[in-house]
């Protein structure tokens, strides 16, 4: 156990440079994965390999299982068949492995899920202090750094309830970044926002992508997919129907369902 904590401390210092060297490394590997809710077969035969540094957008009609898929990747949902390997750790019922994966995988939710009883700064420093054991002053410095990145350092001492939706979502992104994750999962990050706030959140996500963060993003923002993604995955009825680079995906969809979906949303 003690060697593990020193291991993660080491990585903290090197992980910015590491992103570029390990371009071809596999970040997430999903093999033959199935998931049921009771008797309902939500995810069927999912095979997906995510390379480090990839930006993947997952699209699909509602109820197609896309949110469930990325929630499986940090075990907010458990799968029943197949394998999910994140950063070389296979997700099983073992709590220690789950903790290990969650420490390295950040997640941003549709409804932000900021902790309403803590200030913005406390929201950002909670996990670094209690999970990573980082001294408060250092955690706060990191938090301020990320708040500046998402352009709201002046809100540090307010409570989430005092912020607009767009600001809250940027705080939520910053909160995940404070844990210096290797992978970021976005679960419809802009769906609950008023239209004028979508842009400010997307800007933050784009700048994150430009820095080489491995990202999986469930979203309906096709503009974002075109601009940022290097791969678009289309899901329907719990399975991956089609995946391709955004250029081909939008200009030349292959599967009937993909064509239908795109014709419905692209005008």
């Amino acid at each position: 156990m003690s060697d593990m904590s020193s291991h993660s401390a080491e990585e903290r210092t090197v992980n910015t440079s590491q992103m570029k060297v390990s371009d071809t490394e596999v970040a997430i590997d999903v093999v033959g994965m199935h998931k049921w809710y009771g008797d309902f077969h939500v995810l069927r035969d999912i095979d997906l390999k995510v390379m480090r540094g990839e930006r993947i957008v997952i699209a699909g009609p509602s109820g197609s299982g896309k949110s469930t898929l990325i929630r499986c990747m940090n075990r907010l949902e458990e799968h029943q068949q197949g394998q999910i390997i994140v950063n070389g750790v296979e997700l099983t019922a073992d709590l220690k492995r789950i903790d290990e994966v969650r420490r390295e995988v950040g997640m941003v939710f549709q409804h932000f899920n900021l902790f309403p009883h803590l200030t913005i700064l406390q929201n950002l420093t909670l996990a670094p202090i209690w999970v990573r054991g980082i001294p408060q002053a250092e955690a706060e410095a990191t938090a301020m750094h990320y708040l500046e990145r998402v352009k709201i350092p002046e809100q540090a001492n307010k409570f989430p309830g005092q912020l607009s939706g767009g600001q809250q979502q940027r705080v939520a992104i910053a909160r995940s970044l404070c844990m210096q994750p290797k992978i970021m999962l976005f679960d419809e990050p802009t769906s609950a926002l008023d239209p004028e706030m979508v842009k400010e959140v997307l800007e933050v996500m784009i700048s994150l992508a430009e820095e080489g963060m491995t990202m999986l993003c469930v979203t309906h923002e096709m503009g974002f997919a075109r601009q940022v993604a290097n791969r678009v995955i289309f899901m329907d009825q719990g399975q991956i129907i089609e995946q391709n680079d955004p250029e081909t995906f939008f200009s030349n969809p292959q599967h009937e369902r993909t064509k239908l979906f795109l014709s419905q949303i692209l005008h």
Binding site: H34, W36, G38, D39, F40, H41, R44, D45, K49, Q80, Q81, R231, Q237, G238, Q239, I240, I241, E242, Q243, N244, D245, T248, Q254, H255
Partner: peptide, 22 residues
């Protein structure tokens, strides 16, 4: 790129494995 993929047949829903239902 190598990840280009189109599903050729749909997977029909199966009942949950015994160890997850019943």
């Amino acid at each position: 790129m190598s990840f280009s993929y189109v599903r050729d047949h749909m997977v029909e829903p199966r009942p949950a494995p015994v160890n997850t239902a019943g």
